[in-house]
Amino acid sequence: MSLSRINPVNSLLLTLHVTKVRFRILSRYKGWFAFDFIFPIVFAALPILIGVSVAGGPGNAARAFKTNTGTSNYVIYLLIGSIVMMTVETSMWLVGYWLRWEREVGTIESIYLTPARRIQILTGVSLYSGMRSIFTFVGSYTFGCLLFGINPFQGEMLIAMLFLIAGLMPMWGIGFLYGAFILKVREAGSLINILGWGMAFLMGAYYPITVFPVTIQYLALAFPPTWMTNGIRSSLLHLSYFLGAWHWDLGVLVLYSIVMPLIGIWVFTAVEHRIKRNEGVGKF
C-alpha cells in the first residue's frame, strides 16, 4: 500500500504546490525582475521617443497621435500595448515552453512517472503564469507611468483588470497548443518566436488595428490578444470598444477563455497520447 491518496483535496494541493515551486525556482534566477518589469517599459520607450522625435516635440506628437487613435495620451497607449505584448508573450512561453524546459532539465519523465494528472500540473503552471503576468502588468504599468511622469490611476481600472484576466485565459489555451507543438516538433523555439512576433504585430501593440487593410483587421480580430489590448486601452483611455460597449467585448474574451483552453487541452492530450505510442515524452 503506497502513501498516495488521490482525492480532490490532495489534487488541489498538488496544483498549488506546482505554482509554489515555479515561483520558488523563479526566485532563484536573479534577473527575472529586470526582465518582467524593465523590458516592457524599454519596448514602449522606443516608439514613444521615436514618435516625439519625428513629430518635433511632445505637443505635436500628442496632436498627431490623437488624429489616428482618438487619444493624445500616447505614453499610456504605447505602454499598455507594450506591456500586453510582453504579458502575452510571457504567458504563452511559460505555459507552452513548460514542457520544453522540463525536457531540457531532465525532469519530464519524472513528472510523467507520477500519478499526477497533466491537467492539474498544467493548471498549476497556468496559475503561476497568470499571477506573474498580472504582477508584471500592474508593476510595469505603474512604474512606466511614474517614469514618464503620468498619473497611472485614470480611467476604469476595474474593467481594465477584467480585460486583463479574461485575456490571459485564452493565452493558456494557446500555450497548450504551443506545448503540443513543442512535444511533437521539439526544436520549435525559432518558429514559436516568429509566431509570437506575428501575434504582437496583429494585436496592435503600438497602433490601432484600423491602420490595417480590412482583411488583416478581420485576421487580427481572430486573436484574443487583440481584444485584450483594445479592452484595456479603451477602459483606461476612454476609447471606443470593438462592439460598442465594454461588456460585449469582454463577452467575446470570456468566450475565448472557455473555447481556447478546451481546444488546447484536447490537442495537447491527443499529441501526448500519439507520442507515448511511439518514442515517449522524454526523448529530445
Binding site: 498516495s4 488521490i6 498538488l14 506546482v18 520558488r24 519524472s110 507520477t114
Partner: peptide, 18 residues
C-alpha cells in the same frame, strides 16, 4: 534550482502524499 528537500516535497505532492 531546488534543494533536495524541496525536490522530495514536490514529488511527494505529485504522488498525492498528504
Amino acid at each position: 534550482k531546488l534543494t533536495g528537500r524541496e525536490n522530495l516535497e514536490y514529488f511527494g505532492a505529485l504522488y498525492y502524499v498528504p
